[in-house]
Nucleic acid binder design. Structure first.
Lengths: 107, 107
DNA sequence: AACTTATATCGTTATTTTACGATATAGTAA
DNA sequence: TTACTATATCGTAAAATAACGATATAAGTT
């Protein structure tokens, strides 16, 4: 028996479109890179840490980390807050919860 | 109040690593493109359809659709079964359910 | 065997992504 | 002001992605 033998709409509903779909695809893109996934993991165990902590943790250049942080910001996974000369990063809990809910509902 | 003021580990646990993490990032990459998301949506409403149906539905070339189908296969979102000269595609329900469960647990 | 159908793969081009070092910016301290 | 710290942005190069037309492959038909 193949995977095709199941009931058609058993696993999904996918009632999503327009701006919601755009946002969802964006968030998928945000975590489509292993370095960025590691950053998210790091932020879970090191909440509200600054860029430098993430740079020290990862084996890549500061500029590259900053670029990944920008992608994670632009795709709605994290939020950065200026704290003196540094930037404090946190998970964007509200968006992450939205993502989680959407994935839970549509797939 | 900023997003950073919440309880640290409120939204995530992220106890994932190794091959599971690789697979998860892969699946994120699979849906990081709007065309591929549309293909998944189409497969929900048109289960077990053949490539040609998807090509007719989308505004892009057959070769490009075939390329996207390959990505969706390689990232574990769909399964293709040869049906005479055609290929019948279905959602990889088992993997999708795994993804859904993982996302539900870790975020 | 020759032909048609359906789809995958090839070769190519344009765009995007990822990575880096170097530099600019903004805040803090002396 | 000058210097220091932390981070973002710039400029660039290599690699990956997305798109296409053309071609190859594989199954069914005459």
């Amino acid at each position: 028996m193949t995977e095709c033998s199941g009931i058609p709409t058993a696993c999904c509903s996918l009632d999503i479109s327009g701006q919601e779909l755009v946002k969802l695809v964006k968030m998928f893109k945000g975590l489509s890179n292993p370095i960025r996934f590691e950053i998210i993991k790091f932020l879970v165990t090191h909440p509200a840490c600054i860029t430098g902590n993430i740079v020290d943790f990862l084996p890549i250049a500061q500029a590259t980390v900053s670029q990944h942080l920008k992608v994670l910001r632009d795709t709605g996974w994290i939020v950065g807050v200026t704290e003196g000369p540094a930037t404090k990063y946190c998970l964007y809990a509200q968006n992450i919860d939205w993502f989680k809910t959407k994935v839970g509902k549509i797939f």
